[in-house]
Design a protein around this nucleic acid. Structure first.
Lengths: 246, 246
DNA sequence: TTAATAGTGTCTGTAAGACACTATCTA
DNA sequence: TAGATAGTGTCTTACAGACACTATTAA
């Protein structure tokens, strides 16, 4: 099959970002307000075109930096808590009414950040609890996301929920140094359940290499001072943390 | 951002297929021989261009049918044992020396099939043990796959290996009706380990909804007649099957 | 008979779930 | 003091891993 340009139809390739964080005990996603048709004025996931010379994950990191100022280095990196990975690709013919767009969605897990600065071409950006964005996914909810972004968001949330079961990825939602209680509240927010603090403590501190004590303590959560940890080298949690009510 | 064609660079979008099966106690992948440059004469994963009006998973199913005669219905379907799902997308600028190609890889799990019929434009097709295709992934192995297909295959194999831990997907490698021993040999081939037959039997028959007895028996594996089962409705295995030596 | 696979039962160690109890901070 | 969170210990139960033993076929 020689690569005659007439052989293949032209596609636009974009990256869309599911940027998740935990704010006030709720899992939140970054949304931007659309400035043009279609879906003008509606909220959407941040994203943009992939450039000619650019790798997919590089494009995702660039869009993330433009939208939030967040920096990542390599795919899978957990520098400063920020994690970026490819999620899935969406290419249904009618998903964009104007032309054929294939979007490679990426998942970003970030610690709680200051209110997003809409640095890019977006008309506004904010954190929205995913529960509100995903309620009544089938019907026309009031806060319905543009395009098929509700489905993309749902896939990203499900990926995050399942990945923290067997990996140390939940630490990506925490600052560089965090307490066991703060990590537990991340699990509770992402899964939407309550976990037993004692059993959780035993599980995460008993897994070798999962948490590394940094030496200090903090009382920023109130109560007795808690030890500070950072994420250890062990990225796999075996046996996994069990998600209740599955 | 108005969709002026000059705004975005032209991409070709293809689907590549990681088709896995278990033959003679070995995990094998479907490979086709390339008829043109680059990589002429080398083995590669089957694949092809996505058509204008075609969904990504539809394109993957079409390529699969053209290449093997295998039929699937919906994504995630387990009809006649065949399973098809999206794997990941590969779009590094230099991955195809001729032009910018973004490939959406898909993973197919199929029962043991007759020798593949190279029905498509491929110069030949065969099953190759993945162990041989992946050995010395970094160096220039003798049986090196074209493009970045060795990495795509490695990602597909890893996906299959991890998914059978917590799902009933291993049944996709079996015929519609199978015995507990045949299912165990699938796990052993995919993971490359030996499992205790007694503990395996207890695990899979003790999980409600995982296996459904069909009533008959078979002696096609030799020895005492074994009950025949089909995959049950329970697609999630909780607690998961533990992969040894991880 | 032997050799193969199928299937049941039993023991042991690990770990999860439930929860009592103590420790140390702020208000 | 009360009330919050941190952290340890204990008991029970579930289940994986190891393995003895029986069952039923083919050669």
């Amino acid at each position: 099959m020689p690569y005659d340009p007439s052989d293949f139809p032209p596609f636009a390739v974009t990256v869309d970002l599911v940027v998740l964080t935990v704010r006030r005990h709720a899992l939140c996603a970054l949304t931007v307000r659309r400035g043009e048709e279609p879906y003008r004025g509606q909220w959407a996931l941040p994203g943009g075109f992939v450039r000619v010379e650019e790798d997919l994950v590089t494009a995702a990191a660039r869009e993330l930096a433009e939208e939030t100022g967040l920096g990542t280095q390599d795919p899978g990196s957990t520098q400063a808590g920020v994690h970026l990975e490819q999620l899935a690709t969406y290419g249904e013919p009618g998903r964009d009414p104007r032309m054929r767009v294939v979007s490679v969605a990426h998942l970003v897990l970030a610690p709680d950040l200051p209110a997003p600065t809409a640095g890019g071409d977006a008309g506004g950006a904010r954190w929205t609890p995913v529960a509100r964005l995903l309620e009544g996914l089938d019907e026309q909810a009031t806060e319905r996301l543009a395009f098929d972004h509700a489905r993309i968001l749902a896939d990203g949330v499900e990926r995050a929920r399942s990945k923290i079961e067997y990996s140390s990825l939940a630490a990506a939602f925490c600052p560089a140094e965090f307490t066991v209680g703060e990590l537990r509240r991340v699990y509770e927010a992402v899964w939407g359940v309550a976990l037993d603090p004692r059993n959780f403590h035993r599980k995460v501190t008993g897994t070798p290499g999962f948490l590394v004590p940094v030496g200090g303590t903090t009382t920023r959560q109130g109560g007795r001072p808690a030890q500070l940890f950072r994420a250890g080298g062990a990225t796999l949690l075996n046996p996994p943390m069990l998600r209740p009510e599955v």
